[in-house]
Design a binder for these strands. Structure first.
Lengths: 358, 358
DNA sequence: GCTCGAGATCGAACCGGTTCGATCAAGAAC
DNA sequence: GTTCTTGATCGAACCGGTTCGATCTCGAGC
């Protein structure tokens, strides 16, 4: 069996409490005693039991990550998901924390799992991806008063969960950047293939799209804004039917890699080629955009960074526990306003927008 | 604060031990008492603390999953990774277990993390992906004597870790199936673009490839077997240089989606088209193969099932603890021979092999 | 030489469950 | 009526840490 702290104490000839203090680097032990204890620990190959530690100090050092499968694009977008997790894991590891993974079919299932997770107190904090308006897990969060970080901007005021921290890209900037790039290449009729408006990133990108047009002095034409699910098939049919009337346009900004692929299929079927007839720019720089024929220009969202920042934010919140109990008005104010981290985006030009032959 | 079992006991007017028995459905309590306890628990909104439970019974109900980032293809293969996790999570959830995720840069880092994880006793079992020959984490596993399941066939006898359970596809069959399909369409000169031989699935697929040829009475030509890293770039250069000599062949089996894409780029550059000049078949049915132009026929490995079975296997092993301590020779034998689950594969025909226009 | 205080050490309680051996009550057997 | 058995219940110990308040030691100050 593995050595316990009592074994170490016995061997070092000190009490258990002294051994604990020494092992944790607390200042109250004499150097001599500390050495004895550390030596004994080494000899016994002692390593503290994480579960016992958690029970004693009430911290599991575990962060729970919830991902709804319904976010198809997260899963189908090649590599996106993996890079996200990679960043999260790195941040957690740096601070001695662990990631527990929860993949749910729906937000209802998320609510269910969050509830049982919190009741059994298996996590110190939660990371939730792409919340919709008033998601069903809100009461569970409220009940447990556990720190939460959202990946993506939550919509509305969320009076129950307080404060609301979140990490995302500046999606207005994503839309703006896309339009700017295409406009710079001389395009004046730029279509937007957007996703469902229940996703705040879609709302924001639309806003950025309009802003970009405005800055360029280009008119906003509603007929050029199409909405499809974040699947290849639906993007394909959406673009096909949008173009039935014979619209005039020379550039297309798609809000995901997968939708860009669907759009390209539709264009191809109508005899239109990228970039010659239509310049195409996607959001999400993945294997799909990189290896497509032609390679699809894409806005990189830096998923690894996104995940990293989300965990960092959560850990920071965990270091300032009980914000509502704080008496310092300064602390309270800080705590009350949710923190927000913005991760920059980068445009990767490729053949599909006429930028490069690569 | 949340109610504890002592609160429940007090309210129900019974002892803590009786409350525990009642709550866990143990047979020794009278129906009357059980009702009282359950009622009290309901009224207090009692939910047992998972950490305390773990400390008491020594089971964390956590399974740790290790994924080396170096398995580029897992990450770049669109969706593969997500589906794998999905299956694992489903199996774990069904049995009240949790998944903790560990993404490592190398097997050395894996060894390091496994060691600290096991020392702090944070997991009951491990899932390791694609072990190489004699990986550096072997001593750590041996030291802890913790149940392990491998995703992919481990190479060699692994005298230290006993028994070795693993889950994988029948990769010999994968190779065989690929060749058979292409041969059925009349191809006689079938090239194989394989991955590095440190991966056992590559060894097995090569074996299957040879077997398939043999069954069809086709000669094995070493010049038609190429090896590249599992990246698009390396696959591309490998195929380019392989074809410098002007080889004769009409079909190509690639051992990953990403390599198929690289191969197609090389072929295109040499003026060869799929499927007209060369029929192409890939392993890994992902967004990349599905949405490529032309769509790439692919062998689906059923990742979701792979993940599901891996967790199931691990949980089964956890139900028969201490196999080496068992005195029943029958048990011992069962325990000593590692269990092995094979997940079937399915061929999805698409345009690239000349099967379908979709 | 005695007092005082700071620093080191210790014992015990605690975190929230499970489990084992002892006790107790009730019904069966004689 | 006494003894034996069986099932229900209980108290206490345990899992392996942390932490708090009490005690002990020793040197400084008077």
């Amino acid at each position: 069996m593995a050595a316990t702290i009592r074994d170490v104490a016995r061997r070092a000839g000190v009490s258990v409490s002294t051994a604990s203090l020494a092992l944790n680097g607390k200042p109250l032990v004499s150097p001599k005693t500390r050495q004895k204890v550390l030596q004994a620990a080494r000899e016994l190959n002692y390593h503290p039991n994480a579960v016992a530690k958690s029970l004693a100090d009430g911290r599991t050092r575990t962060l729970a990550l919830f991902i709804p499968v319904t976010l198809e694009h997260l899963f189908s977008s090649a590599g996106f998901f993996g890079r996200l997790l990679q960043g999260m894991h790195r941040a957690a590891l740096e601070r001695g924390h662990h990631l527990s993974l929860h993949i749910v079919e729906s937000e209802e299932e998320a609510a269910e799992q969050i509830r049982t997770l919190l009741r059994s107190r298996r996590a110190d904090g939660l990371i939730l991806t792409n919340p919709t308006v008033d998601p069903p897990y809100l009461p569970a969060l409220k009940e447990a008063e556990i720190p939460v970080v959202f990946l993506g901007r939550p919509l509305g005021d969320w009076p129950h969960v307080n404060p609301v921290d979140h990490v995302d890209n500046d999606n207005v900037e994503v839309g703006r950047l896309g339009v700017q790039h295409l406009a710079e290449k001389g395009h004046e009729r730029i279509a937007l293939l957007n996703g469902p408006s229940r996703f705040t990133f879609c709302l924001d990108r639309l806003e950025g799209y309009r802003q970009g047009l405005r800055e360029r002095g280009l008119p906003y034409d509603e007929a050029l804004v199409w909405t499809s699910d974040m699947t290849e098939e639906h993007a394909y049919t959406t673009v096909l039917s949008a173009l039935e009337g014979g619209l005039e346009f020379t550039a297309l900004l798609a809000t995901s890699d997968i939708q860009a692929v669907g759009a390209l299929r539709a264009l191809r079927e109508l005899g239109l080629r990228a970039p010659d007839d239509v310049a195409v720019l996607a959001v999400n720089n993945t294997a799909l955009t990189r290896y497509y024929v032609p390679p699809i220009a894409a806005i990189d969202l830096h998923e690894e960074r996104l995940g990293y920042e989300a965990v960092q934010l959560l850990l920071r919140r965990l270091s300032f526990p009980d914000p509502s109990c704080s008496n310092d008005p300064n602390d309270a104010r800080k705590a009350r306003t949710g923190k927000h981290v913005r991760v920059p985006c980068t445009l990767v030009p490729r053949a599909s927008c006429g930028c490069s032959s690569v």
